[in-house]
Amino acid sequence: MTDTSSTGQARGEATAPRRRALYRLMRYLPLVAPVLLWAVPCWVLLYTGQHWPLPVTAGGTALFVLGLVAMPLGMARGHGRRQQDAAAVLGDTLLGVSWVLFTWSVLLGVLLRPALAGVGDGQDRARTVAWAVLGVSAVLLAWGYAEARRVPRVRRLDVRLPRLGAGLDGLRVVLVTDTHYGPLDRARWSARVCETVNALDADLVCHTGDIADGTAERRRAQAAPLGTVRATHARVYVTGNHEYYSEAQGWVDLMDKLGWEPLRNRHLLLERGGDTLVVAGVDDVTAESSGLPGHRAHLAGALDGADPGLPVLLLAHQPAFVDRAAAAGVDLQLSGHTHGGQIWPFHYLVRLDQPALAGLSHHGARTVLYTSRGTGFWGPPFRVFAPSEITLLVLRSGN
């Protein structure tokens, strides 16, 4: 007979060194990543055979060094203890610029240079690659900025839930999430988002967290328009991970004052046409580690007292919660968190952490997950190949 305890112990001992090595690498990542983000574009644009005039090479190098210094400094002063909004805007913007330059320096340096083999001399090819990187990056950054700052388009789709009663067929659910009110004042944008939501004639409006970066006291003016949102039955809200960086209880209290129902591990019943839908919500999965008393993701508590025969719509900030939702037989989970990747190709890194990037996905025998790309943006004021959205889900009954 195999000793499973000793086998598991051996397996754990074998994987332990790899985990320790990964943790050591992650510790150095904040130091290495900024250097790579600025050094790679600098090398591709200036030092791969272009032979620019000395003032161009020296001036370009100085700009990249300035970016390398200013980006982490701005982010530290903006998002750290000082909370300086101007510094945060500078650091976040430079992060987005460096990410786009890095991405396209790598892609065009790898893809375009071989395609130019035999065209002109080495200097011509190097300069062609450099101008292509600058041109593509400039276009994507300008477009991405406009996409991030615009009022999101409305994404409409039907979601069929077999257990939904006929009286609830056609129920209109509007989802906003990841508004991320922050260093860039977006009070007017917030008001226009709320006007768009009100035009959708929703029965239920949901906000699945990450309202802002900053405390409720600091971002109150940007969040205030949420109080104007209308819904026939209810407006419901759950916390996201960013609330737990910014005094989460203050955001829960403010949303309550603005007329939203904070679903902190509890549910309410939505009744129409003789049928009932359980609308439940849980705190974000990071809540427990925040140390705030009573804050944790507790699905059993959220569903406590609900008739197990009724369909359940669950609000949970992170798509990763869907495993627990599927195990509990939840019919529909609404989430955000991923931003759809926000700036390509960050999409692929998000998929390493979350089971879905955006849109509808099915999990287990019953559970449908809808992951929004988010209504706002976090950090860099750019959205590249990941447009923001306000989502209108029309619930349909029957198979």
Rank of each mutant, 00 (worst) to 15 (best):
Val193Pro: 05
Cys194Tyr: 01
Glu195Asp: 15
Glu195Asn: 08
Thr196Asn: 08
Thr196Trp: 00
Val197Glu: 09
Val197Phe: 05
Asn198Leu: 11
Asn198Phe: 11
Asn198Ser: 11
Ala199Gly: 15
Leu200Ser: 01
Asp201Lys: 14
Asp203Lys: 02
Leu204Met: 02
Cys206Met: 12
His207Trp: 00
His207Ala: 12
Thr208Cys: 14
Thr208Met: 05
Thr208Tyr: 03
Asp210Arg: 05
Ala212Trp: 01
Ala212Glu: 01
Ala212Asp: 01
Gly214Glu: 08
Ala216Val: 14
Arg218Gly: 15
Arg219Leu: 14
Arg220Asn: 08
Arg220Ile: 06
Arg220His: 14
Ala221Arg: 15
Gln222Trp: 11
Ala223Val: 15
Pro225Leu: 11
Leu226Val: 07
Leu226Asp: 09
Arg230His: 13
Arg230Asp: 13
Arg230Met: 12
Ala231Gly: 07
His233Glu: 09
Ala234Glu: 12
Ala234Arg: 14
Tyr237Glu: 00
Thr239His: 02
Thr239Asp: 02
Thr239Val: 04
Asn241Glu: 03
His242Pro: 01
Tyr244Thr: 10
Tyr245Val: 10
Ser246His: 14
Ser246Met: 03
Glu247Asp: 15
Gly250Cys: 06
Trp251Arg: 08
Trp251Lys: 05
Trp251Ala: 12
Val252Gln: 02
Val252Glu: 02
Met255Pro: 02
Lys257Arg: 15
Lys257Ser: 14
Leu258Ser: 04
Trp260Leu: 00
Trp260Thr: 02
Trp260Ala: 02
Pro262Phe: 03
Leu263His: 01
Arg264Asn: 10
His267Ser: 15
Glu271Trp: 04
Gly274Pro: 08
Gly274Ala: 05
Asp275Glu: 07
Leu277Cys: 09
Leu277Tyr: 04
Leu277Ile: 10
Val278Glu: 07
Val278Lys: 01
Ala280Tyr: 04
Ala280Val: 08
Gly281Ala: 04
Val282Met: 04
Val282Leu: 07
Val282Ser: 00
Val282His: 05
Asp283Ala: 12
Val285Glu: 14
Thr286Pro: 06
Thr286Met: 13
Ala287Thr: 03
Glu288Asn: 04
Ser290Leu: 12
Gly291Val: 07
Leu292Cys: 11
Pro293Trp: 05
